[in-house]
Structure formats: structure tokens, C-alpha cells
């Protein structure tokens, strides 16, 4: 464990807590894409399949349980909670996210480190996570106005993988043979997808204006 990875994990944890807090306290998921939340639930479900078989550390298992629990409860809130579900704008959140999953699955079947069931699903979760934010970013373009909590959620979610990139650089220089191109490229693509959001988020913060994405 290094400071970059810890910062990344804490930023990731903060992002899901901000979202859960928003949905649980103000009982609203306006501006949040259910599609992205469903994709993240699938990302964690396919990434942490080994939670029962391989034990790394208490921290590792605890964080996996938190990410699994939070992502599935956010999906549950948005789909089934009587009050929250009414605030979900389904007619705006129309990204065909199943069309994201198929290319990720095909790519995982083609490019992976080992051709085993777990490894292919794990690689699938990496590719899927890289594009999982797309429905959310499309929704933001459509709804244009972003409330603070949703903006903070996306900012933290984008930031965590940026810290992971620093972690990979650190591990590359400190651990011999630590080379994982698939993870690194997927992580880089994921972070770059947030680039324009970060740009407008920073502008709104600098000019102390409400965050508006261009149409």
C-alpha cells in the first residue's frame, strides 16, 4: 500500500458516500444516471468475485464489501425506493449502457493477462469501469444544470483513478516486474473521459459560478 493508492481508495469511498448521502438525506436522485450506477454495480460484482476465495487484508475485504454494498444500495434506492424513484428522470437517462457492456466483454475475451473465467471477468470489469461514467456525463449534458453534490460525486469519482495512476507509476519504479499495461491503459482512458468535466468543474469553481456544461 502506498499513499497514492490510499488517497485513491479514500477518494473513491468519498464519492460513493457523497452520492449515498445525497440520495438518503434529500431523498432525491435528480441528475444522477441510474445506468451509470447499474454499470458500477456490475463492475464491482465482476471485479470482486474472488472476495470469498482470496483474502488479501482486512482493509481490502472491508473496502470491497463497502463498494459492493453502496453500489447495489444506490441502484436499489433509485429503482425501488418509493420517494427516490420518482425523482429519477428516466426519459433523459437513455444511454444504451448494455451496448457498452458487449464491446467490453468482447475486448476482455480478446485482450487479457490470463484466459481464465475469473481473469476475463476481472478484465471485463476494468474495461467497463473505464466507460461506466458515460451515461452520467451524457445525462449532465442534457440536464445541463448540475447540483453541487452530483458535481462533487463525479469530481471525486474521476479523481480516484487519477490517484491510482500515480500509484501505478510509484509501483512501477519501486517493484520489479510490476507491469500491467491493460490496467494502466484502461485507467488512463477512464481518467481522460473526465477531462472535459474536470475543466468545466474547475472553471465553475474558479469563477464561483454554477457548474454548467456546454450543450
Amino acid at each position: 500500500m502506498n499513499i497514492f493508492r490510499l488517497a485513491g481508495d479514500m477518494t473513491h469511498l468519498a464519492s460513493v458516500l457523497v452520492l449515498l448521502l445525497k440520495i438518503h438525506t434529500i431523498k432525491s436522485c435528480a441528475g444522477v444516471s441510474l445506468k451509470t450506477q447499474e454499470l458500477y454495480a456490475i463492475v464491482f460484482a465482476t471485479r470482486y468475485l474472488d472476495i470469498l476465495t482470496s483474502f488479501v487484508s482486512i482493509y481490502n475485504t472491508l473496502m470491497k464489501l463497502i463498494f459492493l454494498g453502496s453500489s447495489f444500495s444506490i441502484v436499489w434506492y433509485m429503482k425501488y425506493h418509493k420517494t427516490v424513484r420518482r425523482t429519477y428522470d428516466r426519459d433523459q437517462d437513455t444511454f444504451r449502457h448494455w451496448f457498452l457492456m458487449l464491446p467490453c466483454l468482447l475486448l476482455a475475451l480478446l485482450i487479457h493477462e490470463k484466459f481464465t473465467f475469473f481473469e476475463v471477468l476481472w478484465t471485463f470489469s476494468l474495461y467497463l469501469e473505464a466507460v461506466a461514467i458515460l451515461p452520467q456525463l451524457v445525462l449532465l449534458q442534457r440536464t445541463r444544470n448540475i447540483d453541487n453534490l452530483t458535481g462533487q460525486y463525479i469530481f471525486l469519482l474521476g479523481g480516484y483513478r487519477g490517484f491510482y495512476i500515480l500509484n501505478w507509476i510509484y509501483r512501477y519504479f519501486t517493484e520489479p516486474h510490476y507491469v500491467h499495461w491493460i490496467t494502466w491503459i484502461a485507467g488512463l482512458v477512464q481518467t481522460l473521459l473526465y477531462a472535459d468535466f474536470f475543466y468545466y468543474y474547475f472553471l465553475s469553481w474558479k469563477n464561483n459560478k454554477k457548474l454548467q456544461l456546454p450543450a
Binding site: 493508492r5 471485479r47 481490502n60 463498494f67 493477462e113 476481472w122 516486474h177 510490476y178 500491467h180
Partner: peptide, 10 residues
């Protein structure tokens, strides 16, 4: 091993 060093990440 090569495999373990990546699976220790979330």
C-alpha cells in the same frame, strides 16, 4: 507472483 500483485488493488 505477477498475478497477486495486481489483485491486491481494489
Amino acid at each position: 507472483s505477477k498475478d497477486d500483485d495486481l489483485k491486491d488493488e481494489l
